[in-house]
Simulated assay, not measured.
Amino acid sequence: MSGFNLRFLGHSTVRLELGGRVVLTDPVLTARVGGLVRVVPVPEPGAYADVDLVLLSHLHGDHLHLPSLKLLGKRPRIVVPRGAGSWLAGKGFAHVEEIAPGETLDEGGLTVTATEAVHSGHRWGPRLTHGPQSPAIGHLIETAGTKIYHAGDTDLFAGMAGFGPVDVALLPVWGWGPNLGPGHLDPARAAQAAALVQARAALPVHWGTLAVPVLKNTARMRRLLADPPRVFAAEVKAAGIATDVLFTEPGADVVLPAPTDRA
Rank of each mutant, 00 (worst) to 15 (best):
G35R: 09
V173A: 06
Q133N: 13
V112E: 14
V255S: 08
H58L: 01
H95A: 13
A144L: 12
G240C: 09
T248L: 06
T104W: 09
H130C: 08
H139T: 05
A49Q: 12
T154D: 07
L215R: 11
V254T: 03
T154Y: 10
N5F: 06
A211N: 08
T243W: 11
I99W: 15
T260N: 07
S68L: 03
T143D: 07
P257Q: 09
R7P: 01
G46F: 08
P67F: 04
Y149M: 12
D261I: 00
D227S: 03
D26N: 14
V214K: 08
L185Y: 01
L105C: 09
F163C: 02
P178D: 08
R15G: 04
V166K: 06
A242C: 00
H95I: 00
A117K: 08
Q198G: 13
D261Y: 06
A193P: 02
R223W: 15
L171Q: 05
G35E: 11
V197I: 09
K74L: 13
L64G: 02
G3F: 05
V231I: 14
G208V: 00
Q133I: 14
K91A: 14
Y149L: 15
Q133H: 13
R127S: 13
K74S: 15
L110S: 10
G83A: 08
R123L: 15
A234W: 03
E142W: 11
L9A: 03
V80F: 00
A194K: 02
E103N: 11
F163S: 01
H63G: 04
S86W: 14
V22S: 13
P43T: 04
V168Y: 10
H139I: 06
P126L: 10
G175T: 08
D253Q: 07
A49I: 05
L156V: 01
F157N: 06
